[in-house]
């Protein structure tokens, strides 16, 4: 936990250093000092929290002496940290667009393969008291719907569904990330929220999921890369292998992620 904070701190410090230089320079590491030799820093989209937590344990068992530090957050924040010189080894993003930010800065590894996909689902209170059966029901009178803001991947996907289906939603709120949409539903303040299938499974005690065929129009791709300036290049490549391998696929599938 303290290491996690430390990473974020270094990233912030790195940002400050870059800003101080006028935004041009690329320090190769954070000014606050390098993480230890056997520390692998993995920046991963918040939706991967559970799966990557499992893979972290797996990797540490398979590679004694290596400490995997997960830096979890919104993909765009993580990409921004990397662009500003955060010493990160592996980046797993929830959208190709955020991976592109890193690639455009010349910092991504040679390959940025899509390792999994995620699909939208409607989260409703357990038992579905408002009888939501499809995407169009989100506009039913008396149903309070919340969605993600169009600037984040889940919101972009929701917008895609709206366009493809011709159903323009009238949400009560466009939340900054998918977890706050989930929270509005689990706390009972919204009747329905458009979230990922993985979020529904993650909260299956409190919410039910309603699938809708239009979701197939907006599958979200998750790319991963071992960063070009990774402080631990060999370990980084190994972690990407784990994510894309049999163990990774199994953990992802169990959480509700799809195969690309």
């Amino acid at each position: 936990m303290s290491r996690h904070r430390y990473t974020v701190f270094t990233a912030v410090l790195g940002t400050a250093v870059v800003a101080g230089c006028g935004g041009g320079a690329q320090p190769s590491s954070g000014a606050g000092g390098q993480p230890g030799e056997g520390t692998l820093t993995v920046s991963a989209a918040a939706s991967l929290t559970k799966v990557f937590g499992e893979l972290e344990k797996r990797f540490e068992t398979d590679n004694p002496g290596v400490d995997v530090v997960l830096n979890l957050g919104s993909s765009s924040t993580l990409a921004e940290q990397i662009v500003h010189g955060a010493p990160v080894d592996v980046f797993a993003a929830a959208s190709p667009a955020t991976m592109k930010t890193v690639a455009d800065a010349g910092l991504a590894g040679a390959e940025q393969p899509v390792f999994t996909t995620n699909k939208l689902q409607i989260a409703v209170a357990a038992g579905n008291p408002k009888g939501v059966t499809g995407f169009a029901d989100l506009n039913k009178p008396g149903v309070i719907t919340v969605v993600c803001a169009p600037q984040v991947p889940c919101g972009a996907a929701t917008e895609k569904v709206e366009k493809a289906s011709g159903i323009a939603l009238r949400p009560a709120s466009r939340e900054p990330d998918v977890k706050s949409v989930v929270n509005k539903v689990t706390s009972g303040n919204a009747d329905a929220g458009v979230v990922y299938l993985t979020d529904v499974l993650d909260n299956d005690a409190k919410v039910d999921g309603v699938s809708f065929p239009e979701a197939d129009n907006a599958i979200n791709d998750y790319p991963v890369t071992a960063l070009k300036n990774a402080p631990h290049a060999a370990l980084a490549a190994k972690f990407v292998e784990l994510v894309r391998g049999e163990d990774g696929r199994r953990a992802l599938e169990a959480a509700g992620f799809g195969t690309p």
């Binding site: 600037q151 984040v152 949400p171 009560a172 709120s173 466009r174 939340e175 900054p176 706050s180 509005k184």
Partner: peptide, 23 residues
């Protein structure tokens, strides 16, 4: 953001918009 949500014209104040645009 935790209590009011974010919707243009109703609950989306400038700091909320800044946070969303930043994405």
């Amino acid at each position: 953001i935790a209590f009011a949500g974010s919707l243009q014209g109703t609950t989306q104040t400038l700091p909320l918009l800044v946070y969303q645009v930043r994405e």
